[in-house]
Nucleic acid binder design. Sequence first.
DNA 1: GTCTATAAAACGATAGAC
DNA 2: GTCTATCGTTTTATAGAC
Lengths: 201, 201
Amino acid sequence: MSEQEPPAEKQSATRTRLIVSALGLFSRNGYAATGVKAILADAKTPYGSLYHWFPGGKRELGVAAVAHGGEVYRGLFETRYPTDLDVIAATEAAFVEAADMLEATDFADSCPLATIALEVANTDEPMRQAAAAAFESWLTVFEQRFLAAGMKPDRAREVAVNVFCLLEGAALLARTTKSPVPMHVAGKTAAKAVADGLATN
Amino acid sequence: MSEQEPPAEKQSATRTRLIVSALGLFSRNGYAATGVKAILADAKTPYGSLYHWFPGGKRELGVAAVAHGGEVYRGLFETRYPTDLDVIAATEAAFVEAADMLEATDFADSCPLATIALEVANTDEPMRQAAAAAFESWLTVFEQRFLAAGMKPDRAREVAVNVFCLLEGAALLARTTKSPVPMHVAGKTAAKAVADGLATN
DNA sequence: GTCTATAAAACGATAGAC
DNA sequence: GTCTATCGTTTTATAGAC
């Protein structure tokens, strides 16, 4: 038997470190404000390695970081929306968790992609598309949970959009005002929107 | 009689042009990604004038631009929430108007402060405070309209926060996916939230 | 107050040794 | 594949003429 050959290029530890460091710095300080050197220092990686793994430089790393953030949070949402639990309570719980996370990080960490998405929406098309795909994947998770709970298909998509908007809008207001209150207020409304969506069957 | 002496420093045409240009470029391309030279070119102003009117440079101009955007949009919201019209219909109309604006500008213009606010939330305290004050002034406009419509005080503040979150979250999703649909969906929910707030009196 | 020339530093990216 | 030295540009900011 020949030894197993993993698709090495996508699984390099160096590559992964660069992506994780980039996502963290981009989400906290912004994409444009984060220098390549700061990413390399955070990832404890020398200059040349970045251009080995990402020939397209900062922009290609940005696309990979956005895609990674999208996948990680999609996994988180799947965990927080277990099919065997009350979907209304799970919705409000997700907002409470987001509020706790914000307070624990001095209002730095909530959605890892919102800042980047707004920055690149009109200036970097590949990154914009990566962010759009990430948001769509989250909406799909929400929608499928609502469908599993018995919501009508056309309502499930609308409620998913509403939950997303409330979550992201509350994250903006909470981070800017350094207050967890908007997240709690929006969470109650999101739970109510889910309840209303289920009621109109 | 002595000739009238306006408080000239704050009303200079050059100063105003710099602020307007800066706000437009910051909101479309981001604060960090916008160079001082691009602002000066847009405002048709030579280099030295910026540091005459804003000794603190780009950051001081940023604070003024955020404050200006906050005032302009507070005025817009006051116009869109006239006290003599149905506040529920006015709420949904504001979202429809935002959707139309997004489509007319290829999804560039919605909230002029959201991108900047997220960029500076953890990196520039004076700008963060300016953005927080702007958002608070908008919430106050919403709240007072709901109070005028007969909503209970504690509910009015909550509904104002919900309308804000829905509007900002929908702007993020609409700009990122280049679709007006989230704004229309969120608008219906916002109108419903206002109706619910009025019903529980 | 307006404008230009320039400084000092940081930027993203590359070349080439190992 | 790793690492360093450096290139060429662009950045914010300043000095000083007008």
